[in-house]
Design a binder for these strands. Sequence first.
DNA 1: TCTGGGGTCCTAGGACCC
DNA 2: TCTGGGGTCCTAGGACCC
Length: 445
Amino acid sequence: MSSIPLSEGRPPTQRIATPAQRIALVDVNNFYASCERLFDPRLESRPMVVLSNNDGCIIARSDEAKALGIAMGVAVHKVRDSLKRQKVQIYSSNYALYGDMSARVVSVLKRFTPYLEVYSIDESFLDLSGFADPEAYGHDIRDTVLRWTGLPVSVGVGATKTLAKIANRMAKKNPALGGVFVMPGDDADDELLGRIETGDVWGIGRRLAARLETLGIVTALDLKRADPKFIRARFSVVVERTVLELRGTPCLSLEAATPQQKGIMVSRGFGKRVRDFGHIEAAVATYASRAAEKLRRQGLAANKLTVSLRTSPFDAARERYANAASFVFPEATTDTAEMIGAAGRCLKSIFKPGLAYQKTGVFLDALEDAGHAQRSLFSRFDSGPGADPARTRALMQTMDRLNAAWGRDTVRFAATGLQRPWAMKQGNKSPCYTTRWRDLKQVQA
DNA sequence: TCTGGGGTCCTAGGACCC
DNA sequence: TCTGGGGTCCTAGGACCC
């Protein structure tokens, strides 16, 4: 994270003097709207919005649209008349375009420092520790990105990620700053923090803000001055970190390497309500295969698949229902057909006829590196050279006998193979074997 | 009629083991 | 049969982010 390498052999507890950490947050202003504008110059200085997947709600607005008071996330049908009256241009979203533009911005940013974390499609954290004049550097970054990609960015600099976020917000809110703001640091931050509500601090959402308010903590400055230990006891370690970060103590490090993804989700709302099982089944199969594609593209394999299904939480008059079912694969898989099959079974177990459904999704979980996917305990008997199905059956029978005799999942296979709540709910008693090497050892013992 | 589609991390609590 | 502490692993649910 720091650009100063630790010398080898130094005890980890010993602190070394480093220049104050400087983190810059660079993000694209109104990212989706700015991308669309790039390819349609007629939109320049006109109010415009970009819509979500089914053109359901507003997910991006140009400055001009914001000035008209159009809210983020609002359902289009609620504001359709007002959009028309104010001549707001309306665009469907184009994620392929945004992904491509995002990559271009990142490649420009990488010329400024290799210590960079791509945080989201339109935001990156840059480590500028040790740079003499971060403000001038920020302007350089901004000018270069604009010139090379056509996209306007804002740059906020602070001692921690949380402070960089706040600085970025300042840069956006005050046009006079020219898109760049550097937090002065320490006590000099206080005047500014006093004018920011806790809910606008990174990591403090609506619920936490409400709970903090009951304690009299209303502004970012109040939060900075709160006792970290008290906050930890009352809330959690997450909020405690935010307090420390506001004080300039880094708790969230810059992650230059992208870690392995932990879950993969594909979900969509239906354009209109759906009652037909076949329709939902087709959607689930499509999502399962898309999820499998994403999985393989990253060289991962999944151990578990979950299907969720729900009616609309917005239909106050109709019966509400939401449920999910999971399937744990006998061994980690990347196979589309296997996933579609599992997804279909899961769906069947939670589908209730007669309801008007709004949304379904497929989630892949317990991911691991496909190259090191755990071999099935039985796979060497099941297939390949030396296959011995009889041996497999014998092993399974042994397990069944042990489990029956001891009245529980003695050797831990039977129960761990199926997610319990689902198995119970379905009355599915058939054992499903997870076959890890540690289990094999227990059997042999 | 119509309300996004993804992700992350933390905590509490249950099952189980010795 | 009861009691009990210390530990791991797993899951559900809640909070947040973009």
